[in-house]
Write a protein that binds this DNA or RNA. Sequence first.
DNA 1: GTCATTTTGGTACTTTAGTATGAAGCCGTT
DNA 2: AACGGCTTCATACTAAAGTACCAAAATGAC
Lengths: 136, 136
Amino acid sequence: MKKTVLTFGLLILALLVLFQLSKYTLVSGDSNIEIIMAAVAIIFFSIGIYLNKRSLHKNVLPDSEIDLEKIDALDLSKREYEVLKEISLGLSNKEIGDKLFVSESTIKTHVSNILVKLDAKRRTQAVQIAKEMRIL
Amino acid sequence: MKKTVLTFGLLILALLVLFQLSKYTLVSGDSNIEIIMAAVAIIFFSIGIYLNKRSLHKNVLPDSEIDLEKIDALDLSKREYEVLKEISLGLSNKEIGDKLFVSESTIKTHVSNILVKLDAKRRTQAVQIAKEMRIL
DNA sequence: GTCATTTTGGTACTTTAGTATGAAGCCGTT
DNA sequence: AACGGCTTCATACTAAAGTACCAAAATGAC
């Protein structure tokens, strides 16, 4: 709310400044109205785009960004993160093992470690937690 | 690309029209430059916001919309869909049963049906498929 | 009220997931 | 070289998940 008042206040201020500028230019006889018009158009067009980007980016970026720093914070190793990604794709331990060229036993070990680190009881829960943390 | 050219073409056209209007008004001696200025400002401000919303919404909406029609198309019953949602939250069959006040056997039946209908082999895969279909 | 579908539940079984534990090789740091 | 962390793998076990098959209520449409 405060931001809305502030931005609209600034908009009105900018408009007033431009009014004075245009008057001055017209009085001084230059009458290059086109340039002022274009300036006004460009400025407000830019403002419109800028304001929108700001207000919408707050909702857009967090959905697409994956927080690589948080992976470190969770002590998830590279390999464990790889396995986690495969789990989220719905693969079984055997399938993940084949895909990463290691045995199913290895994947089981990784999965167990992932569950401990993400504080999950099941792989489905691990995926859910990881997505909430914007890691996946 | 084509759309970008089109919109910018329209913008230039609008600007030119406004030039002519302003000239006409000035020549006719009215010299109410403020009104024209304000009009230009408002119009381009609106265009800026509009264009941005259009371009960003394409990426925003599909992520948040859940396609209720597709649930029908998959023959997923209400109850099955409920169970699917709980699965995506990482709950076990037992936990889902407790949450929905039915036995684990019932949940197992539902899960089996869900897997067949979503053409999945595992619950994790079912979640992934459902999310791809924008059902979850 | 009849009929089809949904929802519920069970038993018995197979498969996959997950735990516990131990161990060997690799790799970067001190 | 020694140390800690990562990756790998195995065995043996328990717990969950999933399949197959059946069957009885409940629901909703006609």
